[in-house]
Structures are given as structure tokens and as C-alpha cells.
Design a protein around this nucleic acid. Structure first.
Lengths: 128, 128
DNA sequence: GCGTGATTACTCGGATACAAGATGTCCGAGTTTGAGCGG
DNA sequence: CCGCTCAAACTCGGACATCTTGTATCCGAGTAATCACGC
């Protein structure tokens, strides 16, 4: 079990966009160069962030990606969910009576992690 | 990102062994039947638990797997680590100055989850 | 100058290729138990 | 009744086969800005 590289790219892209601040779009080419990843692949990842309403894209010349207006409230968990999906880390998928105790324990552990990631938002990150 | 099925099998096997209690070994055939998984595959998973010192195996007729003496202290985290390995969920693997802030945040979130899983041990589970 | 068209610099989406890891199977080898059998 | 042998019931480990998912590339299409050119 590991976070995917795509999540890593998404997080770093957001970090960069936040630290650059101006409202001018940044091309995927530049974003990709900084992270040593192919532009076309990064583009696919960023499309997910667009659909999740975190950034917006401007096509055409001088186009690229820029933060959406609500960027300060975006949390780490939001970004991770946008890339990895929102399904839980564990499902017992075995019927041994209702309410598998293992399922309950693992999910509550996951919730602990989610809670921490939910409290970390972009506006705090930019201070560092 | 998801926990593997193997982890699910391992956890449920431990739960079963704990609830059965007697020191008589349980054959992998019976364990596999309960979880609807092939015996040979489950055997490979259980071998990892043996190497981690959580259970022990008895070969030969009437053989099988049984809990080790220290079973009460085994935590969920121990089992998960035995199957999934101990590498962290996230590594930035990108050099943008020392101490990637993203890495720090995600790892501290993981630590929250680990802490919860570390506190859940087998002796508590058996009560439920 | 001023529209108009062509060129350029981008994003978007689908299809596809590739790689790695999880999942599962097969088989040969070792080990213990217990039953059978001969003395 | 004792001891020997042999079969049965297991685990163990390596080598595969298969499936899924993440990662990455290619290409054609759409879109916006800018440049060139003719009037």
C-alpha cells in the first residue's frame, strides 16, 4: 500500500501554484519540468484537479493552469481524494455476521489519518 | 491506495486463531475454507506471519498453525507491517531543498493512523 | 491602421503501450502422525 | 506386544501464470493569442 506518484505530482503542483500566487496561468510544460515528469501525463492528473474544482485551465496560447478562487480552503485530503478516489482503504468483503470488528478498527484508523489531512490546507502550507 | 487482500486474510486468520484459543494447530485448509481463498495462497501469507514471530507452524500430520505465546501483545500494526512491509506510504523523491513540507505533513498523518493501529491488540479484539 | 486569415502555443480526450505488483496455481521436497504388519 | 515400515496428512519453498493497476506515450481535435498581409 502506497500513495501513487500521481498524488505526489498533484500535491507538488498545488504547492507550486500556491507559492507563485499571481493569477497568470502556468503551462503544464513548466510544471512538468520542475517535477521531472512527462507533460502529457501530468496533464491528465491536472485534469482531475480541474474537475474537482481546485484549479482551472486556460486553453490556447499563453494558457495553462491556475488556482481557483477557493484555493485557501483546499485541504490535503481534498487533493488526495481527487486523485486516488474516495473509496476507503479497506473492505472486509466477507460475511461473518454484520459489522466486522476488523473493518471497524481499520476504518477508524483511516479516519484518524484523514482528519489530520483534512486540517492541512493550502493557506497554511504557503507560510512554510 | 488500498490495503491488499493478503492483509485482510492475515487479519482474519489472526482473529480466528485468537477466538479458537486452544493450542491445537489449525490446518491451512480449514482457515482457507472460512475465507474462501485458496489454501496454497493463504499458506504463503501465513508463512510471513510465522517469520514475524506471531504464529508458529507444525508440519506433518495434524499439523497447521497456532498462535505464539506472545499473542496478546500483537497489534494490528504488527500484522499489517508483516504483510505489507514497513516502508512509509509516501516518499517525495524529488529534491527541492531539504525537508519537503508535503512529505512531513503526509508522514505525520500516517503516523496518526499507525498510532491507532498500534493500540489495537489481539487481547482487546477477542473480547468483541 | 484595420480587419482577416494563417500560424503558433497551448489544453483535452481517447486509445494504446508498458511495467510492476498483487493474486493465485503447480509441483517437488521435507516432516510428523498413525496405521499395518511381521516377528 | 513391540518395533519396523509405509502411507497419509500436513507445511515449505521456488517457479510460474494471470490479472489488475499505475505509469506513460501518441495523436487528433479544439481554442485562444499573436503575427502577417492586403486593402
Amino acid at each position: 500500500m502506497k500513495f501513487s506518484k500521481a498524488t505526489n505530482y498533484a500535491l507538488h503542483t498545488m504547492l507550486f501554484l500556491v507559492s507563485v500566487t499571481p493569477n497568470k496561468p502556468v503551462s503544464v510544460l513548466e510544471l512538468a519540468k520542475r517535477q521531472e515528469v512527462s507533460p502529457t501525463y501530468l496533464s491528465k492528473i491536472l485534469t482531475k484537479l480541474v474537475k474537482a474544482g481546485m484549479i482551472e485551465s486556460a486553453s490556447g496560447a499563453n494558457g495553462g493552469y491556475r488556482l481557483n478562487l477557493n484555493w485557501e480552503n483546499i485541504s490535503f485530503l481534498d487533493i488526495i481524494h481527487a486523485i486516488e478516489g474516495t473509496t476507503s482503504l479497506f473492505d472486509c468483503s466477507l460475511d461473518h455476521g454484520p459489522g466486522c470488528p476488523i473493518q471497524q478498527i481499520v476504518l477508524s484508523a483511516e479516519e484518524k489519518m484523514d482528519e489530520h489531512l483534512r486540517n492541512q490546507n493550502m493557506s497554511e502550507l504557503v507560510k512554510k
